[in-house]
């Protein structure tokens, strides 16, 4: 796997140098936020085999929480992010405990329905600003000292968190806990027969995933300065599924690549084609499911793996 190492080094160099070589930092930050979101989602779908169709709920709940804590209560950003993650973890615990009572396709429907419930709650609460959402959230000073209103400073903060999450997920997947998750994905009855408390492992994976999704949502609020209804809408849940599916379910780098492609597509197309964005996203879904279910990274791995064997 030499090639992978080179790719990672090149990408790391690119990420560190990005603001210096003129890449628009807000765009890269948006990409990194969604990359965190997709990696968190992939921990659940790719390594535990659970399809949550409501991950926008945790992303959005944390986005609103952080926005409220910073804007109204004037908390410092790092504590507000922890607050957002705590709420995402808590709601993940409640939803997860209900959803794992049913298997397979029901799990997807339950997570979607409960996320829609949160959407309506956010629409009606005064706290969340209803249709307007929370606007004009300041970035504040990190640890009360370092001002994040500078895009470059904010960029390195987001990058550091992204790298931490990426390595953390690698660590989780390669740990004994991660191996048990994969065993559950491959054959749940066998994992049960080996004496594992499958429900507890699933729930823990779910809460880990929602907590990290919350981190992504909190960061997104700080980067853009707003949290709106679209953060909790089901189409956001669909987007994170698409990012993961397009990049490669169950690969480390796939969700990052998928997030990059989807964010770039949206940024470039939104003004030009209007409603056709949703048509294009739908078409990518169809093509992914029909033609390359392993995603871009998964297919590339399969291709290079095959070549190595024949050589």
């Amino acid at each position: 796997m030499r090639l992978t190492t080179y790719v990672y080094i090149a990408l790391a160099a690119l990420a560190v140098l990005a603001p210096l070589i003129g890449l628009y930092p807000v765009f890269v930050m948006k990409l990194l936020c969604f990359a965190i979101f997709a990696c968190a989602f992939n921990l659940l779908l790719g390594y535990t085999g659970l399809l949550s169709f409501g991950h926008a709920a945790y992303f959005g709940a944390a986005a609103y929480t952080t926005g409220y804590l910073v804007k109204t209560l004037h908390w410092t950003p790092e504590v507000a992010i922890l607050g957002g993650m705590a709420l995402a973890a808590f709601s993940g615990l409640i939803v997860g405990a209900m959803a794992i009572r049913r298997q397979g396709i029901y799990f997807a429907m339950i997570t979607l329905a409960l996320a829609q419930m949160l959407y309506f709650v956010c629409l009606q609460l005064k706290l969340t600003g209803g249709e307007d959402g929370l606007q004009g959230v300041p970035r504040g000073n990190l640890f009360g000292m370092l001002s994040l209103s500078n895009d470059t400073t904010m960029y390195y903060f987001v990058l550091a968190l992204f790298v931490t999450v990426f390595l953390l997920i690698r660590r989780i997947v390669h740990s004994p806990f991660g191996q048990i998750l994969k065993a559950i994905r491959e054959n749940e009855p066998r994992a049960v027969s080996l004496g594992y408390d499958v429900e507890r492992y699933k729930l823990l994976a779910f809460v880990l995933s929602t907590t990290l999704a919350g981190l992504a949502g909190s960061l997104k609020t700080l980067v853009f300065g707003f949290a709106t209804l679209s953060d909790v809408h089901w189409s956001m849940s669909g987007e994170v599924i698409l990012m993961t599916l397009l990049g490669g379910v169950g690969t480390f780098f796939g969700p990052v690549l998928g997030a990059g492609i989807v964010v770039a597509l949206q940024d470039n197309l939104a003004d030009k084609v209007g409603s056709w964005v949703s048509v294009i996203i739908g078409a990518i879904f169809v093509v992914c499911v029909m033609a390359f279910r392993r995603g871009l990274v998964g297919e590339a791995q399969a291709f290079f793996g095959r070549k190595k064997k024949t050589a």
Binding site: L51, F53, S278, G282, V286
Partner: peptide, 22 residues
């Protein structure tokens, strides 16, 4: 896996909704 059926039909729903919205 039945999940793929859900994802495919989700994609089709997005396409239909997008066309009519346009």
């Amino acid at each position: 896996d039945p999940l793929y059926g859900l994802l495919l039909t989700f994609g089709l729903a997005l396409i239909a909704e997008g066309i009519f919205r346009d």
